[in-house]
Computed example of a mutant assay.
Amino acid sequence: MVDVTLDEADGSMALVKIQAETWELNIRAPKGDLMQLREVRDAHWDARRSLAIGTCADAPVYWATSEGRVTILIGPDDEAWDIAVVVPLVAVDEIVSLVQQRT
């Protein structure tokens, strides 16, 4: 289980906070880019597809699905990342919902 919150840095930028009991991930992205997460179900890792949306610790963030979960990859590209976190698909749906509510 993860919690998702959305803070607005300014009119177009957002800070997405995804956290579990033992970790927290902060991703910054334009709200319009975050809306592209609606397409995450088509970004199948098995087909080496991912969505490049946002930054974390000044590194690009890539999103891909596998086995009904979303892997968030942080690093120079989606093949050579530095950090990977797996979250339930519902967490990404919640990000999209929160962005929709604030646009």
Score class of each variant (00 low, 15 high):
G32Y: 02
A9N: 13
L89H: 09
D3H: 14
R69S: 13
W23K: 10
A84Q: 10
G75F: 12
V86R: 07
W81L: 08
R41K: 14
E24C: 08
R69K: 14
S97M: 04
E94F: 04
V61R: 00
A43F: 11
V99W: 06
P60T: 05
V92D: 04
H44E: 15
G32W: 02
L25D: 02
R41T: 15
R48D: 04
L25Q: 03
L73V: 05
P88E: 10
L34Y: 05
A52K: 15
A91T: 00
I83F: 11
D78H: 15
V2C: 08
L25G: 05
E24Q: 14
R48P: 00
A29V: 04
Y62G: 04
R102E: 10
A29E: 03
I83L: 11
V96G: 06
V2A: 12
A20L: 00
I83D: 04
K17I: 06
I18P: 01
W45N: 15
L37F: 06
K31I: 02
M35S: 15
S97Q: 12
L15P: 01
D42L: 13
D10L: 08
D58W: 03
L15C: 09
G11M: 07
L34Q: 05
K31E: 11
S12F: 07
I72D: 08
A47Y: 14
G68I: 13
M35A: 14
S12A: 13
E24M: 11
D46W: 01
A91R: 00
A20I: 01
V4W: 01
D78Q: 12
L51P: 05
T65I: 07
V4Q: 02
M35T: 15
R38L: 08
A29N: 02
T103P: 06
D78F: 12
L51T: 01
L37P: 01
D93W: 02
V85S: 04
I83M: 09
I95R: 00
S97H: 10
L73E: 07
T5Y: 00
N26Q: 13
S66W: 02
A57G: 04
L89N: 06
V96Y: 05
T65S: 12
V16R: 01
D7L: 03
I72G: 07
T5H: 02
Q101F: 06
M13C: 04
S50Y: 15
I27A: 07
V2L: 03
E79K: 12
I18M: 05
G32K: 10
Q101A: 13
G75I: 08
M13H: 09
G32D: 12
V70M: 08
T103I: 13
M35F: 02
T22M: 10
E39K: 11
A64S: 15
D7E: 15
V99F: 06
K17C: 05
